[in-house]
Design a protein around this nucleic acid. Structure first.
Length: 557
RNA sequence: GCCUCCGUAGCUCAGCUGGAUAGAGCAUCGGCCUUCUAAUCCGACGGUCGCAGGUUCGAAUCCUGCCGGGGGCGCCA
């Protein structure tokens, strides 16, 4: 008996009541009703507020409606008891022996347990990080690397067809500033104005020279472009390697230049003109984004003839749409939230409904404390904390998990000492440890010659202890958690769920009556083997959940 | 000034598409290791959910105003 089954049972009861005329619902029977795990055991295993929500429409009072539902629901298979409480809650107690049945389904589903079809048919593009290829990825990119990657994984698990994309800002004056900075470093000259400083520039100068000896001796006319291209390739490769090492995979690395080379930008401008959303003023070309809620119109071509970044953005958006994406998710830092209005307006200008096709997520910035002091980054001064340094110091798993367990819109302060601590202070290890424990238990069981019952031989009715039921209910919750994380784009829900589930598992483990292994010389009983199914199911859920966050699930710790 | 995010226990934060007595970890204090991994588990302590109104059977959650903090408001990229 899973919550989904219970919810559909309640819907069936409502339908039957309507059919018999015992109940009248002008808006029809809802397709789904709320059924949640009860927080307190006096409230049964599951609770539903459906009677309170439908009472007004049905022209009755909540408790009376609840009584109608209770009578039918109690007769349903798997339901042991229904109580009406408070203003009209239905507190449902499930048959003790029926709950663990889900464990065999979980084991059978394996890696696909938790996958649903709630977003099936949707083609989603998730764009994140999109840094300039003019330096290493740093602290500021780390949160988006984790969240974007996790969102991609979660959306896939919910059945969406997902492409994770990195937009390379490889066009524009910053590329020349970048090259000029490297040349200056190679020649021992001071950093040029608007240039980049820092040790990595010196390192790049050496790497560029190594890649193409004599490049800095080229005539100044050719040198800038030559250095720019070599350094670009090296820096981009470095970013790509860094992200792969951080378990963050991109399906598409999209070059801004390619939009211009392919003629997409002029085509886009022409299309906007045809649609009547651009005008010329003060020698510049503007998009009238204010028609669609932006606070001011935006420049597409500057009066000096240069295209703006926004012109590329628009062409890029159309490119994504032309590739067949129904939803374009953008993950942006809080320092870019001013872009939201113009992005929406831009989508509206090209004829889309931004509420349908655009999903701009604004994430708040992260502060990292070391010894009570904030790690600051200043590009101008050339002091940056790179993603690689952070991952080396904190560990990929701990860093990823620590960032993934908070919603994107909460500003965050992480203490290096706290998230590197290999103890219970750190939830990532708590969850990983619980997983390792399940692995060890399975090994012990195998050593004793215990066999894992299959779906046909597994007897859930042997698992009637309160803790067995608790654990089974927690495990049964996983698919709904993944689905809601996907729909709300909130992967932190997975992390919180894993912590709670690991806790339920540990409590179960510490319950003497729920021992999985036989004690001493006792023979292996069917109950022992039934519990082994529960252990394997727990292992599956923890491993799948950690996987959705891009965190490893070690077998030993 | 306008826009936006945040304000919940001593600390770091969940909970927010309205539900029952507001949760977790840390910290503090106190318990359980001859039996599956004690990185576990059990208990105690700890809160005017920033403030004030409103909406309703019911508000930490939705609406309005105010207070406090972060970020943003370029023909920059």
């Amino acid at each position: 008996m899973t919550p989904e089954q219970l919810a559909s049972t309640v819907v069936d009861v409502l339908s039957a009541l309507v059919e018999e005329g015992a109940l009248s619902l002008p808006d029809g029977v809802p397709a789904s009703v709320g059924v949640e795990r009860s927080r307190q055991k006096e409230h049964g295993d599951y609770a539903s507020n459906v009677a309170m929500q439908l009472a007004k429409k049905a022209g009755t009072n909540p408790r009376a409606l609840a009584a109608l539902i209770k009578e039918r629901l109690e007769a349903a298979p798997g339901v042991a008891k229904v109580d009406i409480a408070g203003p009209g809650f239905l507190n449902i107690t499930v048959d003790a022996g029926a709950q663990a049945g889900v464990a065999a389904e979980i084991v059978a589903a394996g890696e696909s347990y938790g996958h649903t079809r709630v977003l099936a048919g949707q083609r989603i593009n998730v764009e994140f990080i999109s840094a300039n290829p003019t330096g290493p990825l740093h602290l500021g990119h780390t949160r988006w690397a984790v969240l974007g990657d996790a969102i991609g994984r979660v959306l896939s698990a919910a059945g969406a067809e997902v492409t994770r994309e990195f937009y390379i800002n490889d066009r524009g004056v910053q590329m020349n500033h970048f090259a000029a900075s490297i040349i200056a470093a190679a020649l021992g000259e001071p950093t040029p104005e608007n240039g980049y400083a820092g040790g990595y520039i010196d390192d790049l100068a050496k790497a560029v020279e190594a890649a193409q000896p004599g490049i800095f001796a080229l005539p100044p006319g050719e040198r800038l472009e030559a250095v720019r291209e070599v350094a670009y390739a090296i820096q981009l490769k470095e970013q790509q390697d860094t992200l792969e090492g951080f378990h963050t995979h991109f399906d598409v690395w999209f070059s801004e230049r390619s939009l211009h080379d392919s003629g997409s930008v002029p085509e886009t401008l022409q299309r906007l003109k045809d649609l009547g959303h651009v005008y010329e003023q003060d020698g510049a070309l503007w998009m009238r984004t204010t028609d669609f809620g932006d606070d001011k119109d935006r420049v597409l071509i500057k009066s000096d003839g240069e295209l703006t970044y926004f012109a590329s953005d628009t062409a890029y958006y159309l490119n994504k749409r032309a590739r067949g994406f129904d939803h374009c998710i953008y993950l942006l830092g809080a320092d870019h939230h001013g872009y939201v209005g113009r992005l929406r307006a831009m989508a509206a200008c090209v004829g889309d409904d931004p509420a349908q096709t655009l999903d701009v997520m604004i994430g708040q910035l992260v502060k990292i404390l070391r010894d009570g002091e904030e790690l600051k980054l200043s590009k101008r001064a050339g002091t940056i904390v790179t993603l690689t340094e952070l991952a080396d110091e904190i560990g990929v798993d701990a860093l990823r998990y620590s960032l993934a367990r908070y919603p994107a819109d909460s500003p965050l302060t992480l203490d290096v000492a706290e998230i590197t601590k290999a103890s219970n202070d750190n939830p990532v290890y708590y969850v990983q440890y619980a997983h390792a424990r399940t692995c060890r238990m399975a090994e012990n069981a195998a050593d004793l010659g215990m066999t894992l019952p299959g779906a046909d031989s597994f007897d859930p009715s042997l698992l009637t202890h309160e803790r067995d039921g608790e654990l089974a209910r927690a495990l049964a919750e996983f698919p709904r958690v993944v689905a809601s994380a996907a729909e709300l784009r909130q992967p932190h829900r997975i992390a919180r769920y894993l912590e709670a589930t690991a806790s339920v598992f540990n409590k179960w483990y510490d319950t003497k009556e729920c021992r999985m292994l036989p004690q001493g010389d006792e023979p292996v009983t069917p109950t022992n083997e039934a519990r082994l199914v529960l252990v394997h199911a727990t292992r599956t859920v923890l491993a799948n959940g950690l996987g959705l966050l891009g965190v490893t699930a070690p077998e030993r710790m």
